[in-house]
Amino acid sequence: MKDHIRPALTMLLLLTVLTGLVYPLAVTGLAQLVFPNQANGSLIVREGKVIGSKLIGQYFDRPEYFWSRPSATSPFPYNAAASGGSNLGPTNPVLIEAVKSRVAALRAAYPGNDSLVPVDLVTSSGSGLDPHISPEAAQYQIRRVARVRGIDEAVLRDLVVQHTEGRQLGVLGEPRVNVLLLNLALDERR
């Protein structure tokens, strides 16, 4: 049995150097060389300042913006330093009440819109950092944003279409709208 001790320790050391240092550093070097923008977090920079990442959502609940999906991160929504989901089960009364109050908030922000609320707009995402809403959820909010900003609905509809990504390679995933990029485009129209 004693003859296993030396190989076990030396092998662990060698494999640690190989897979724990050489490998991640090689990937880092390669990534920084070939895809520096993606490797560093796909950051959005305006006037020299980082204002977010196009992959990480931000929280919007003012009527003049398209709202993002609810987020369960703590202590505030879309906290990108501590990702997390709600983990509420489907029969948990807390979940049902939360969804009801989100529907109520959406309706209060634009009274008179009685159509059904798209499910993604009132359920929190797995990461709490989901940057997207469904095209249907963007559609649902167009009238509100148009009225608050005094923009023509048709113009907004075009803007949403411009910011809608289809399924990747035509098959994978779901069509989606990046809320942060859409709201940035709204602010930059002026």
Partner: peptide
Amino acid sequence: GQAGGNMEGKELR
């Protein structure tokens, strides 16, 4: 325009 279904805890993409 939407996946629908049970979206609690799921990512839209």
